[in-house]
Amino acid sequence: MAIDINLIFKIAAIGILVSILNQVLKHSGREEMATMTTITGLIIVLLMVIQLINNLFTTVKAMFEMY
C-alpha cells in the first residue's frame, strides 16, 4: 500500500494549513473567508477518510464473505 504514510502526512498538513489560514484571515479582518477555508479543508479531508473507510469495509466484506 504505497499510499500509507503520505496520506497521513497529507491530512496533517491540511489540518495545520487550515488553522494557519484561519489565523491569517482572522487578523486581516475577513471572518467569513476563515470559516470558508475551515469548511473546505474539512470536506477535503472527509473525502479522503471516507474513501479509506469504504476501502476498508469492502475489503472486510470480501475477506469474511459477509454478503
Partner: peptide
C-alpha cells in the same frame, strides 16, 4: 494537529487504523 484543529486528530487516527489493517 489536535492543538490547532481537534477534528483533524480524529481523521488521522481513523486513517491510521484503516491503513494498518490494510
Amino acid at each position: 494537529v489536535k492543538q490547532y484543529k481537534p477534528e483533524y486528530g480524529m481523521h488521522i487516527s481513523i486513517a491510521t487504523g484503516v491503513i494498518i489493517f490494510l
